[in-house]
Design a protein around this nucleic acid. Sequence first.
DNA 1: TCTGGTAGTGTGGTCAGACCACATCGGGAC
DNA 2: GTCCCGATGTGGTCTGACCACACTACCAGA
Lengths: 264, 264
Amino acid sequence: MLTDVAAASVAAPFDELGEPSPPVPRAWQAVLEHVETQLVEGTLAPGDRLPGERALSAELGVGRSSVREALRVLEVLGLIRTHAGSGPNAGAIIISTPGGGMSALMRLQVAARGFPVADIVRTRLILESSVAADLADAVDTARAEHVDAPDLTAAERLLDAMDSPELSPPEFLALDAAFHLALAEASGNQVITATMAGLRSGIEGYALAGLATISDWAATSTRLRREHRGIVDAIRAADAAAARTRIHDHISGYYAETFIDPAH
Amino acid sequence: MLTDVAAASVAAPFDELGEPSPPVPRAWQAVLEHVETQLVEGTLAPGDRLPGERALSAELGVGRSSVREALRVLEVLGLIRTHAGSGPNAGAIIISTPGGGMSALMRLQVAARGFPVADIVRTRLILESSVAADLADAVDTARAEHVDAPDLTAAERLLDAMDSPELSPPEFLALDAAFHLALAEASGNQVITATMAGLRSGIEGYALAGLATISDWAATSTRLRREHRGIVDAIRAADAAAARTRIHDHISGYYAETFIDPAH
DNA sequence: TCTGGTAGTGTGGTCAGACCACATCGGGAC
DNA sequence: GTCCCGATGTGGTCTGACCACACTACCAGA
């Protein structure tokens, strides 16, 4: 169950049952498995330090280069952070920043034409619509049951920043991305937050390229600002249906204005 | 824009503008960037072969081990496949199997407690509900406009296989996972397909563990079979609302029966 | 005693070079 | 013509060697 880190054909239900011949285990996979096992067992937890590369290499009976290949994978996947030197900050430390790994994965898959841009946009529509509706629902239950409402201050601070008139279009777009991410964070779903960070990363190049096709940036940015406020207003008003519709139209509107047709 | 493969703080909108000091570029990142650039430019496309490790190392002026670390990352991310030996099949070849990378990412993030299981389940609910509704809508428009309807034969073949009475619970669960994946594939959205493969992978251990808490497996498996057929029926009937509701209840029902409370 | 610099130590980052197993291809031997 | 076997080049792995870095501990001087 822990062995299919790299291989794992997507649609092969019975691959795991009955292996006719171990297809040559690779040394770096053993390291990955070892770390994953310790993670699952709880021997390793966020904040802990991994043994040094040389120690790990001796412990598992593999070369240091193999250990390093595994650590590199863990680093890109957002599971560890490495620092040279000495002291409490040095070494490989277990962290959890899934956004980075998601971003790398999506960006490269888009580059390799594995992920069509339209699919990314469609997925964004689904996830962000749900996020907006969930937030509105949460506001609703917060009122009814007197519990804490989701925290939208980060998102609204970003909207305030976007009101600045001297923002360049790319700066505006960066804040726009951060706003959408802030909504996901407010929903409290780590998986969606990381996924949305990745999705955004995957189409960042296209979003920037799309800027060139916009004839009247002042009008467009004004509209985007208004739409953003409208989304937050709907959430604050606990109007899930409106929140869902508005964010859906907001996203598909931008891509329709540039050049992508999500065909939804 | 291509430099933040590994770092990439999720919520730092202005990190890209104005770098006070390049935080020591790492050799393997240069390799990753090189490949990504060629991918974006189209110099490299799926099916192409990368230069050999030694050639790449010489070309970029880095050591072979650094090249290998980058290739390892690309392999885990599902971008290349490597074969030793000689001939047209050997070397590193650009492919695109995002499912494997997603699975590794999600599984490890769950293990490292970065992704709560409840968040994974919630995300599954969102994505699969949308997939089912989309499929039903597609069936509807296929009828109206006389175009091809989504292909559900793969999913139904899996359902037939699940009718076999001598399946062990883990085998049943494997087919169940494949069925849900087949629905995503039928929807044609690569991003959702890969993401769902990853989500499923992340909670596979928990799903298997949940089997132990089920008192009457015969009754449960019968119910699951009936629910699966009901989902497909709703899709075939072009009833998007029913499809959405049924798959939602199907998923949340299983986790409620075991031990996870998605609290949705 | 306090202060400041400095050598020591262990970390990751990188490189070079050496094997190995493997798959293919090409040139003989038959 | 057929078959076999070495030459060749690939990824996979290991070893050993540096380097830069950051912290630690120590020691000399005030």
